[in-house]
Design a protein around this nucleic acid. Structure first.
Lengths: 266, 266
DNA sequence: GTCCTGTTGG
DNA sequence: CCAACAGGAC
């Protein structure tokens, strides 16, 4: 039996923040780092930094400028077919098999400002993405270990946001989104590992907006970044080791998201 | 009798290069630093850095984004009326009296690419600026000590450019510009101090384009930055101490211009 | 607030 | 090549 740790982090430009990843890796020594919003093409990814950090195995799904996801690993990655969640073919999905586990790394569209599919196509795109996720996982049941990580851009629970009532009409916490995410979870047979480790009644955030420089004072965060496992893999989850690396929000030139990390005994 | 040193430097964003100014000041200890292209509003000027460096006296003529000039001094600055050289009212002129000397710090318009006033309004603007300079200095003769410094964006002499013939049709060295500058100098009674210190037959540059990363190899520079004195002050110029700080072009994240410095015994 | 992509200016 | 700006996104 060995141990495997997986981290997920919306890094908001991997080129600008390779140094922060280095710092996180030194402090927490994850085996696998899943990134979102790398904001570069495959060829622009700072591969060298990752190989030097002990991650020779890279699976990069980049594109010019926006979005882009990547998986960096100490262990060999096996290429597998990627589910097609994105109607507009943006680089938002990376999938691999590693140590016998299927790993999906996702970056769900943020959805714009107005939570109205009629007037806001970005919101429609987000809901379409979530609907495709639901359909895919319902159609592909598996008893093999499966882990889904990423910036899902939805804070599903009451205590996944600083103020439930205040955010009910704010994109990321509207009922239509939280219900859509709940359905993905239920029909895919997923378990939200954060809420195994930390009771749902306890506030838990992974993102704090850039727009309030005093984010530390009033702690107005949201939990947008998730690690889900299917029943098979959840058995091997070590709840005591689950962590959200809130410190990283206070580092020099930070991402607005912080790393979330889970350990498995496999 | 005391000594007074004046430096001029097109800094190409004072906020980005405050650290380079610090390094220059430590190495050369100028009494007065005249800057061009500060590229910020008055309120955005890094005043704190200058006071810490021993320059509590600041005269800033900033504007949003482009141009902008400033004078930083160890000695008290007296506000005086500023000549109006700029038809478009850009922040290109700063004037003060310091230690009994009148100091004009100028940033002449670069003039665009095409040396043709018909098709290139920037070139017309540059020539209009130079014509206004000529008219002003001709109309304001003085026996008081006067020094004019700045990025004049003209390399007047054959050996003020890496290749005289190659640049005769390139903005900064066209006959219409060099003659215009010569007329300012002649009618204003100015002396080009660099050419007192260094014979006109010797190549002398203060600017090397960003566009050739191998600027050091072929040394394709131009002398665009000048220190002129009227006859009164020129008597007190110490030619042996004149310097062009070429090293600064090789510093980390440099300006494309380097500091030019003159000492006076007053 | 911060980053990306253009464009314009030097 | 390097810096500003504007516009869009999150």
């Amino acid at each position: 039996m060995t141990r495997l740790s997986i981290a997920t982090w919306n890094i908001n430009s991997v080129r600008l923040r390779a140094g922060l990843i280095q710092r996180f890796v030194e402090e927490r020594r994850p085996d696998i780092v899943c990134l979102q919003e790398i904001k570069c093409r495959n060829g622009e990814f700072p591969t060298h930094v990752f190989t030097q950090m002990g991650f020779p195995h890279l699976h990069i799904r980049g594109q010019k400028g926006w979005h882009g996801v990547a998986i960096a690993s100490r262990f060999a990655l096996e290429e597998i077919s990627e589910p097609d969640f994105c109607p507009q073919q943006e680089a938002r999905v990376a999938a691999v098999r590693v140590k016998g586990i299927t790993l999906h790394n996702l970056y769900v569209p943020a959805g714009g400002d107005e939570p109205d599919t009629q007037i806001n196509p970005k919101f429609a795109h987000k809901l379409a993405f979530l609907a495709r996720m639901e359909a895919y996982y319902a159609a592909h049941p598996t008893n093999e270990p499966l882990v889904l990580v990423g910036d899902l851009n939805v804070a599903p629970g009451e205590h996944d946001v600083w103020g439930h009532k205040q955010l009910l009409n704010v994109v990321s916490h509207t009922p239509v989104e939280t219900q859509a995410l709940d359905k993905v979870m239920a029909r895919g047979g997923f378990i939200d590992l954060a809420r195994i480790a930390v009771p749902p009644s306890e506030k838990l955030f992974s993102w704090w907006s850039y727009r309030s420089p005093d984010w530390t004072k009033n702690d107005r965060g949201r939990r947008l970044d998730h690690i889900w496992a299917n029943r098979e893999l959840a058995k091997q989850f070590d709840a005591d080791s689950f962590s959200i690396h809130k410190n990283a929000r206070a580092w020099e030139k930070p991402s607005d998201h912080v790393p979330v990390m889970a350990h498995f005994d496999i």
